[in-house]
C-alpha cells in the first residue's frame, strides 16, 4: 500500500507551499518512508524547479526520486483553505516518493493511474469532501 491512514492529512492548516512541503516531508520521515529529511527535501525542490507540479485543478503533486526513499509512498494532504503554489491555488496535495533503485513497476503503475484519475473532476470532488475512511479508500487504486 502506497498510502496508509498515517499518510493522510485532512484539514491541514498550512498556508504556503514551503510550509506544507516541510510538514509533509517530516511526516514521511516520522513514518519511516525516508531516511534523510534534507536529502528528500532537495529532491522535491529540484523537481519543482523543472516546472511547477501545480498545474491547475486545485492539485499539486510534489515528487522526489531519491535514494533517501526507503519505500515508495504517496501522502495525501488537503488544506483547510486553498494555498498559493507558484501560479496556482491548490487544496489537494499529493507528495510522492520513489527510490532510485529497487522500485517495482507495480508501484509506478499505481502512481501513474492516480495521476490519470486526478483529471477526473468527480474524483477530485470526492477527495475534497471525504472523511478519512473514504479518503483512504479513494487512494487505494
Amino acid at each position: 500500500m502506497l498510502t496508509t491512514k498515517e499518510l493522510i492529512s485532512l484539514d491541514n492548516h498550512s498556508s504556503s507551499k514551503d510550509e506544507i512541503i516541510t510538514q509533509l516531508v517530516e511526516l514521511a520521515y516520522k513514518q519511516k518512508k525516508i531516511s534523510d529529511l534534507a536529502g528528500f527535501t532537495e529532491a522535491i525542490y529540484r523537481r519543482e524547479a523543472e516546472f511547477s507540479t501545480a498545474l491547475g485543478m486545485s492539485i499539486a503533486m510534489p515528487h522526489g526520486q531519491s535514494d533517501t526513499v526507503r519505500e515508495p509512498f504517496v501522502i495525501f494532504a488537503r488544506t483547510e483553505e486553498p494555498i498559493q503554489w507558484d501560479q496556482n491555488q491548490v487544496q489537494l496535495i499529493f507528495m510522492i516518493g520513489v527510490p532510485l533503485a529497487n522500485r517495482s513497476d507495480t508501484h509506478m503503475k499505481i502512481i501513474a493511474s492516480l495521476s490519470k484519475k486526478l483529471l477526473d473532476e468527480s474524483f477530485r470532488q470526492s477527495l475534497l469532501e471525504s472523511g478519512i475512511d473514504d479518503a483512504l479508500r479513494l487512494m487505494q487504486l
Binding site: R47, E50, F51, T53, I111, A112, S115, L119
Partner: peptide, 18 residues
C-alpha cells in the same frame, strides 16, 4: 515524457487523448 517520468507523463497522455 517528463523529468522524472513518475506522474505528469501519464497525466498529460490521458488529458490529451481524452
Amino acid at each position: 515524457a517528463c523529468p522524472t517520468g513518475i506522474a505528469h507523463t501519464y497525466m498529460a497522455q490521458e488529458a490529451l487523448e481524452k
